[in-house]
Simulated assay, not measured.
Amino acid sequence: MTDISFSPWEMFMNAGPVVRCVMILLALASLLTWTVFFAKSVELVRVRLKLGRAERALEDAGTLDLGEEHTRGAGIAHALVMAAEMERERSQDIPDDREGLKERIVLHLERLEAAEGRRLMRGTGLLATIGATSPFIGLFGTVWGIMTSFTGIAASKATSLAVVAPGIAEALLATAL
């Protein structure tokens, strides 16, 4: 009687080529997901810190001109201040148009805010794709492993646990991944 090891590595090595490819694909998808997760986490923390510093600087500034100086290097905050300043400069020849100026500044700031939101969302489509497809890829590996067990039963014309166990083990490993 041979001693078969059921460690995850041994099950992986003894799995058929299709199930092994499924497991590798799922491991790569997991690695990619964690990479995007950590990169986005670091990016969001950095943006939050920059915005906090810029907000405090703007509160201390008092005027738009001083706000421009205080937010230099603060990313989106500086871009927002510069956009407001640009709209103010463009509208100097219309002195009684305060409401129009406010509306133009708001529209400009909304466009900048939307662009920054799109920039921050980069990479999340990949996460959505992986999240939507991984269960089905894993299920495919599971079904393939169970089919391997059934072909093992048919080939050996026996239904003992020794015949079924390897295929079921690789199917369950694919499910776990």
Rank of each mutant, 00 (worst) to 15 (best):
V81D: 05
I105T: 02
D60P: 03
D60I: 09
E87P: 10
M86Q: 07
E99N: 09
R104M: 12
L101R: 01
R119A: 00
E110G: 00
V81F: 08
R98W: 04
E103R: 13
E59S: 12
G67F: 01
E116H: 14
L109M: 02
R111F: 10
K102S: 13
G100Y: 03
V106C: 07
L101P: 00
V81T: 02
E69Q: 15
H70T: 11
E116A: 14
E85N: 12
H108D: 07
R88T: 14
E99S: 13
E99M: 11
R119N: 01
E59Q: 13
I105N: 01
R111A: 15
K102H: 13
I105V: 03
M82R: 15
P95I: 15
L112S: 05
E116Y: 07
A114I: 05
T71M: 12
R88M: 15
R118H: 11
E99I: 10
D65V: 15
R122F: 09
E87L: 12
L126T: 06
E99Y: 06
A84R: 03
E68V: 07
G67M: 02
G100C: 03
D65I: 14
D96L: 15
H70N: 11
L127C: 01
R122G: 10
D96T: 14
E69F: 06
E85S: 15
L120F: 08
G123T: 02
E85I: 08
L64M: 04
L66A: 15
I94V: 11
E85W: 06
L109N: 00
L101Y: 00
A57Y: 06
L109D: 00
Q92S: 12
D93P: 02
L101T: 00
A115H: 08
G100W: 02
A84M: 12
E116M: 10
K102W: 07
A84P: 01
G62P: 03
T71Q: 11
L112Y: 04
G67S: 03
E59A: 15
P95S: 13
G62L: 07
E103V: 04
L120C: 06
T124N: 11
A79Q: 06
R122I: 08
E113Q: 10
S91M: 12
S91Y: 03
L66H: 10
M121K: 13
H78A: 15
E99P: 04
A84I: 08
L80P: 05
I76V: 09
L66Y: 06
G123H: 05
D65L: 15
A77Y: 02
R72N: 12
L64Y: 06
